Amino acid sequence: MKLLHIDSSILGERSVSRALSSEVVEREKWICPDLDVVYRDLALDPALHLSSAHMAAWAGAALEGARLCCDLELGQEYLTEFFEADIVVIGAPMYNFTVPSQLKAWIDRVVVAGETFRYNESGEVQTLLPRGKRVIIVSTRGNVYKADTPTAALEHHESYLKGVLTFIGVDNVSIVRAEGLAFGPDAKHTAINRARAEIAALMT
């Protein structure tokens, strides 16, 4: 059994998403002591944003520059790790109403036509991923974005991640959420405790 643990927060030790994603992984390891864990810190080792040079390389053009070569290798590692993982834990804070750019760059390496999905002759999307892959998203947000709130229309975070994962055929997606973290110490404490209860419920 393999688990891919991804963090994308730029806050280091002050990050709530990092703390909670680690708790999810520790619980999974407690359930399965032989779990093989691969860790990626996208803030410390980010992929480049896609460029015309990437597209040309994928189309078969000659590679130019060590930086591009290294980034293409990193992207292939991302893809292999995601493909092989039975469980993926993603620490995903909300930045400006969506995911961190580092996480978006990772997504651009794993949502690839011909690798994780393909279109058939009718234009339907078919997954190329192994069945049974499970993804746990640890979502952290300063504000509250529930459906009945004034900020609901600005939520392009969890909905984006779930949409992308569903598109490539991952239908087992759980969300652990801590939101309202910017509303003061008491609200932050309550939100984190609520998220920890959700983690415990996931593992039962």
Score class of each variant (00 low, 15 high):
6 I>S: 07
8 S>N: 03
9 S>H: 09
12 G>D: 09
12 G>Q: 12
13 E>K: 11
13 E>I: 12
17 S>A: 13
41 D>I: 10
43 A>W: 15
47 A>P: 11
48 L>P: 00
51 S>N: 05
52 S>G: 09
55 M>N: 01
55 M>K: 06
59 A>L: 10
65 G>R: 11
68 L>C: 06
70 C>Q: 13
70 C>V: 08
72 L>I: 08
75 G>C: 07
75 G>H: 01
77 E>P: 00
77 E>K: 07
78 Y>C: 02
78 Y>L: 03
79 L>M: 07
81 E>G: 05
81 E>N: 14
85 A>Y: 12
85 A>P: 09
87 I>C: 12
87 I>M: 10
88 V>S: 05
89 V>Q: 13
92 A>Q: 04
93 P>D: 10
93 P>H: 09
95 Y>C: 05
102 Q>L: 00
105 A>W: 02
115 E>Q: 07
115 E>C: 01
116 T>C: 00
121 E>R: 10
122 S>Q: 14
124 E>W: 02
126 Q>H: 05
130 P>Q: 15
133 K>Q: 15
134 R>C: 06
136 I>M: 06
136 I>S: 10
137 I>P: 11
139 S>C: 03
141 R>K: 13
141 R>I: 02
142 G>S: 02
143 N>L: 05
146 K>I: 00
147 A>P: 02
147 A>S: 03
147 A>K: 05
149 T>F: 01
150 P>A: 00
155 E>S: 00
160 Y>L: 15
161 L>Q: 05
163 G>P: 02
163 G>S: 07
163 G>M: 06
169 G>N: 08
175 I>Y: 04
179 E>H: 09
180 G>T: 02
184 G>C: 05
186 D>G: 00
188 K>V: 02
193 N>W: 00
194 R>M: 07
196 R>H: 10
198 E>P: 09
198 E>H: 15
